[in-house]
Design a protein around this nucleic acid. Structure first.
Lengths: 168, 168
DNA sequence: AGCGGTGTTTCGCCGGGGTGAACTACTGGC
DNA sequence: GCCAGTAGTTCACCCCGGCGAAACACCGCT
């Protein structure tokens, strides 16, 4: 259980560790972008039973995710990105800077499906977006970095981006 | 999105179908026991951005749960169009612009049967039709876009259009 | 100083959507 | 069979906004 957005650092550490977390969001803050079954948030102050309800739900989900092995269990040939921003695929790998790692992670979670620009912005900049063009630029950079390992990012105009294995 | 506990029946139906759902819980009711990543709840009345945040989170989780599953799904044999206007068939896909996506959706619902021009116009332009030949032009564009994935739109004169898998 | 990560500006292309008009193909009446 | 009307096809433009790309600026680190 942690305060948000103050404890963003702690949040990402817990997130990377695969542990559940409940973000306490003060009135007046925007709700956080949640992209994960093990994360939830609640407005504080909140009634005690509401907090308990959410914590319980997280506990149940956490169990489900670990006992099923349903968590991320990509095959050996599927791309994976580790906690240090190293993306491995086909036996080769690239190191990604933090920002691009977050973007890549978001895209990877929906490999083969569209990831909206909006979601990418929230994934890349959890505490507030920079200029309107930043995402485009970073997607461009990410593209260049991913080409050598055989991953492509396609744009779906006015919708978002779609990551897929490059043909060939 | 449904009211709880009134719509408990609907809730279980959606749940069985594996679809995401957001329970709207009035003040004074106990929070529901959530045991599922595709379920969330919120107190009503609630601010619009809070609802959106939770709906978005559910959408993301839903995608993660369905697309992440097993290595590589070769793609549906039957054509499907997702919320981002991506149409998948035979393992390949095309991104359709919003208008054409709406038209394609209408045609797809009646795959192999005639869809009337009138219905298509209402599907494409819910808030009022533009010029009288707009539909024809967009059907043409849609035709060109669908050819590469093996779908054809045939004309049934004075009745409408009919979508079918392209011969060959 | 050099470098890598990130943000910003600016320019320009191209895709999405609307419109009018030419052209073609089908239809029914004679 | 001919003709006129009507339905549908295709093309050429136009406008606008989204996105790509390069270039530059800034910052922290070594």
């Amino acid at each position: 259980m942690l305060r948000w957005p103050e404890e963003e650092g702690r949040r990402s550490r817990i997130s990377l560790a695969g542990e559940p977390r409940l973000l306490l969001v003060p009135d007046g803050e925007e709700p956080p972008p949640v992209a994960d079954c093990l994360e939830d948030w609640i407005r504080v102050p909140a009634a005690e039973n509401e907090v308990r309800a959410r914590v319980d739900a997280l506990a149940v989900r956490s169990q489900a995710h670990t006992t099923n092995g349903h968590s991320h269990d990509p095959g050996p040939t599927e791309p994976v990105i580790d906690d240090f921003g190293v993306l491995r695929v086909h036996g080769s790998w690239v190191a990604l800077p933090p920002l691009e790692a977050r973007l890549a992670e978001a895209l990877l979670e929906r490999l083969g499906a569209v990831t909206s620009r909006d979601l990418l912005i929230r994934a890349g900049w959890p505490t507030g977006a920079p200029g309107r063009n930043a995402l485009d630029v970073h997607v461009l950079r990410l593209r260049r970095r991913l080409t050598p390992v055989g991953l492509a990012i396609r744009t779906v105009r006015s919708r978002g981006y779609l990551m897929e294995p490059a043909p060939g």
